[in-house]
Simulated assay, not measured.
Amino acid sequence: MNENDFSPRQSLQLIESMINRAKDKYAEDGFMYLLWGWLVFILSIIQFVLLHVFNYAYHYIVWLVTIPVFIYQIFYTKKKNRNQKVFTYTDAIIGYVWITYAIVMLLLCFFIGILTSGEYFKYIIHILLAVYGMPVFLTGIIIKYRPLIYGGIACWVLCILSTFIKNYDYQFLCIPAAMIVAWIIPGYSLRAKYKSQ
């Protein structure tokens, strides 16, 4: 089917659907923001308790919970994309922004683990917050959504503040704080917008 096969009515419907999709930067209900926001918030608090209260050597094991959630996200996203009638360049760009973030974080964790002789924990919180602010901020800029822009900036502010906290245990509390401003608040805001449409 080429453009000559479209009736004027079909052309208008296509244009209208694309405009609506662009305006409604979210047929997004905030579900993934809330899922990951609360998951990381809870796991980071659990890790803090295991590390600071119980001195448990394998405190980091709690993060294994993210593996099944990540697998769930893959299937959830595929299903959502199948049901989505219009897929814009904005959607693609945001996807690539988060893929870039994931690759950069994996590389940084790999190199920090090697270069610091296992003392990665001295640097990981600062690096995580600094790099994490980037996709949150860029997503907010791309879709013109202020809660995400502010969330990205807040991650960078927390990154700076974390350098003044000498005790690693307490540095770790910057992670749940970042989740509140970067994921949870924007997630609930998106959900409210979605329900009001």
Rank of each mutant, 00 (worst) to 15 (best):
Y72S: 04
Q73A: 15
I74M: 11
I74P: 01
F75R: 12
F75E: 02
R82Q: 15
Q84Y: 01
K85M: 12
K85N: 12
T88H: 11
T88D: 11
A92Q: 15
I93C: 02
W98M: 03
T100G: 12
T100M: 09
Y101D: 05
M105W: 04
L106R: 03
F110G: 04
F110N: 14
I114V: 10
I114R: 14
S117I: 07
S117V: 07
S117G: 09
F121K: 11
K122E: 12
K122M: 13
Y123E: 00
I124S: 15
I124E: 13
L128A: 14
A130Q: 00
Y132L: 14
G133V: 07
G133R: 03
M134S: 11
F137I: 05
T139M: 10
G140N: 11
I141Y: 08
I142N: 03
I143C: 01
Y145S: 00
L148T: 02
L148R: 02
G152P: 07
G152E: 08
L158Q: 03
C159H: 04
S162M: 09
K166F: 12
Y168R: 08
D169N: 15
C174N: 11
I180K: 00
V181A: 15
V181E: 09
W183Q: 11
I184S: 03
I185M: 11
Y188C: 05
L190N: 03
L190G: 00
